[in-house]
């Protein structure tokens, strides 16, 4: 069934048991919404030097947006900001692929499970909500640093 390509078991697992959920201390906080469906996320980024030490969040929304936030936490925490940005760019590219890309598992790990979602234009924004929030929060955290 086509639906199984969207709702892969790995996505449903992240949805049922989200990683890193809850708000903890951070350097910057953003609140992003998807106005067409009402999905919301409040996300904080904590940096230590060039390393992403935490991504914490409170969110409400569909399985895709929730699982995506969980995968985001898995993939970027512990990485350097530069490496994390590369993952974010790879994920964005995957979601914009309209089902044509399978994603690079070396870079995206569990996030390749979202390749099926990219076939559903209405759901791409669900998958990207937390990633765009992270990008925004990280930019703010970097900007407020004394150089």
């Amino acid at each position: 069934m086509k639906l199984d390509s969207m709702y892969q078991e790995i996505i449903l697992d992240h949805y049922r048991n989200p990683h890193g959920k809850g708000l903890r201390e951070g350097d910057a906080e953003v609140h992003h919404v998807n106005p067409t469906c009402g999905d919301e996320i409040t996300l904080r980024v904590k940096l230590d030097g060039a390393v992403v030490t935490d991504v914490s969040y409170e969110s409400q929304g569909c399985s895709i947006s929730q699982a995506s936030a969980s995968v985001l936490n898995d993939l970027v925490v512990g990485k350097s900001v530069g490496d994390a940005q590369k993952v974010q760019e790879a994920f964005l590219e995957l979601m914009q692929s309209k089902g044509q890309s399978e994603g690079d598992e070396e870079v995206l790990e569990d996030a390749v499970a979202f390749s099926g979602v990219s076939k559903y234009p209405a759901r791409v924004k669900c998958a990207l909500l937390s990633w765009m929030a992270w990008k925004d929060a990280t930019a703010q955290a970097l900007a407020q640093r004394p150089e």
């Binding site: 639906l3 709702y7 469906c37 569909c62 399985s63 759901r123 669900c126």
Partner: peptide, 12 residues
Amino acid sequence: IHPHDVGQVLDE
């Protein structure tokens, strides 16, 4: 179950 997920499975 989030309405988006309800709608997606109904659409199928």
